[in-house]
Design a protein around this nucleic acid. Structure first.
Length: 417
RNA sequence: GGAGGCGUGCCUGAGCGGUUGAAAGGGACGGUCUCGAAAACCGUUAUACCUGAAAAGGUAUCGAAGGUUCGAAUCCUUCCGCCUCCGCCA
């Protein structure tokens, strides 16, 4: 949730940023509500003060009670109205995204994203590169036809080496990052609505993206991020505890409601996939550094696979709801002849922390932490990138050296007899 | 699914109608002592909002929302959450 004080301080500035995000948000109604709320609050507080002051005397002198009774009745009426105002105000606040940093590139959609650097060499493939999905099917690694019959579109059976490859990636991510001091976590994959709301993940049009279990009043998470953040729900840490870094593994569930027709073939966009995710809690002073640290971890993980990638800073029109700044890593897909998003890295500043009341204590007092999240490896997309980049002329797929130890030192995935 | 219990400050935990923002212990922070540290001792230690230049004052907060009352952490109702036992179960 956004800080109301920021809105009060500079309404035009906030409106400008919302506009840069492509949102038409008028703060006029909200500010009017806020002013009304504060006026009403003042009035009520004066009445309460009067009541509190006179009440003790009523214990001895019952004749003063009728007057206090009328005072109480008017108070009740006014309090009801105050509650209503507050509820409205809260609703309005929840519909506001985070404010991005001033130097985030302005743009209306993903075409406005800024490429920061390209790293690594693209593979030299003789002939026309084959699509990862065609290769995978030929090698009996993915079956979406059967999955469609059993579960519907955008589901897949991963089989054979695709499974081992996924486990290898997971193990590599954990061994690398646990060595860096990240705490390994397997978080819950379902979450309560109020916590989810606090994480800012039901706001805007994100709600449409979630699976909801009506019978139990629970949502399926769309990323480990969603339950890693609430690891410090209602917590008060000490400044010395920070930064706190976690590495979570979870399945991710997404309805892909707005993506009809996009990536319908294959497994780049599915309702369910696994992901290893980094999550950091830190101080406001250090959050930009932490953001770059997480990004550097991502580059190392992609670099380990020896696949070409580029780092992109996401522009205002494409940035996430909760984010003050977002980087993506896009990985090279030879057959598509372009980079595709495989990693995302976000600094949500205190936006999520305010929503889940995650604070820390420093010499300057108690304040909200800054919270950041970053993909380590997203399954299906990363294995797809490996398959497409490591394809061999004979139709087999080489396995990145760093993953071989996790796969029984097998060097290639070849067609089975 | 059946039966019962419980939700208080950073934590543990007392309080069960009126000087209770809330005892006590722990933790954290500051100080004394020390070459330094530990121990011991002394002190400090909630948050939000409102008025105010400040000093200060006011209001709210004991799971949440309602209700009873002049007055609620304390009584009532509903909801939410947690725990224990039994049953079922990877």
């Amino acid at each position: 949730m956004i800080d109301l004080n920021l809105i009060r301080q500079d309404p035009p500035g906030a409106e400008k940023k919302f506009k840069q995000r492509g949102l038409k948000i008028e703060l006029k109604a909200l500010l009017k509500n806020d002013a009304e709320y504060r006026a009403a609050l003042q009035e009520i507080e004066a009445l309460r003060a009067e009541r509190n002051q006179k009440s003790p005397a009523a214990a001895e002198d019952p004749t003063t009670r009728p007057a206090l009774k009328t005072l109480k009745d008017t108070l009740t009426k006014k309090e009801r109205k105050l509650n209503q105002l507050q509820a409205e105000l809260n609703q309005q606040l929840r519909n506001l995204p985070n404010l991005h940093f001033d130097d985030v590139p302005v743009g209306k959609d993903e075409t406005g994203n800024k490429v920061l650097r390209e790293v690594g060499e693209r593979p030299s493939i003789t002939g026309k590169p084959k699509d990862y999905f065609d290769i995978a099917r030929a090698l009996n690694l993915i079956d979406t036809d059967k999955a469609a019959e059993v579960s519907g579109s955008r589901f897949a059976y991963l089989k054979n080496e695709a499974v081992l490859l996924e486990f290898a990636l997971i193990q590599h991510a954990f061994s690398r990052l646990v060595a860096e001091g990240f705490t390994p976590v397997i978080p819950p994959m379902m979450i309560r609505p109020d916590i989810y709301e606090g994480m800012g993940r039901l706001a805007g049009d994100q709600k449409e993206e979630r699976y909801y279990l009506d019978k139990d009043n629970l949502y399926l998470i769309g990323s480990a991020e969603h339950t890693l953040g609430p690891l410090h729900f209602n917590d008060l840490l000490l400044e010395n505890d920070l930064p706190k870094r976690y590495l979570g593994f979870s399945s991710c569930f997404r309805r892909e409601a707005g993506s009809y027709g996009k990536d319908t073939k294959g497994i780049l966009r599915v309702h369910q996939f696994d992901k290893v995710e980094m999550f950091s809690f830190t101080t406001p002073e250090r959050s930009e550094d932490e953001h770059h640290f997480l990004l550097s971890m991502q580059e190392r993980l992609v670099g380990d696979l020896k696949i070409a990638y580029r780092v992109v800073e996401i522009c205002t029109g494409d940035i996430g709801w909760t984010d003050a700044r977002q980087f993506d890593i896009e990985t090279w897909f030879p057959a598509q002849n372009k980079y595709r998003e495989t990693h995302s890295c976000s600094n949500t500043t205190d936006f999520q922390a305010r929503g889940i009341n995650a604070r820390y204590r420093s010499k300057h007092g108690t304040q909200f932490m800054h919270m950041l999240n970053a993909t380590a490896y997203a399954m299906s997309r990363t294995p797809a990138a490996i398959i497409e980049n490591y394809q061999q002329p004979d139709g087999s797929v080489a396995i990145p050296k760093i993953l071989q130890p996790y796969m029984g030192n097998v060097k290639t995935i070849a067609k089975k007899k």
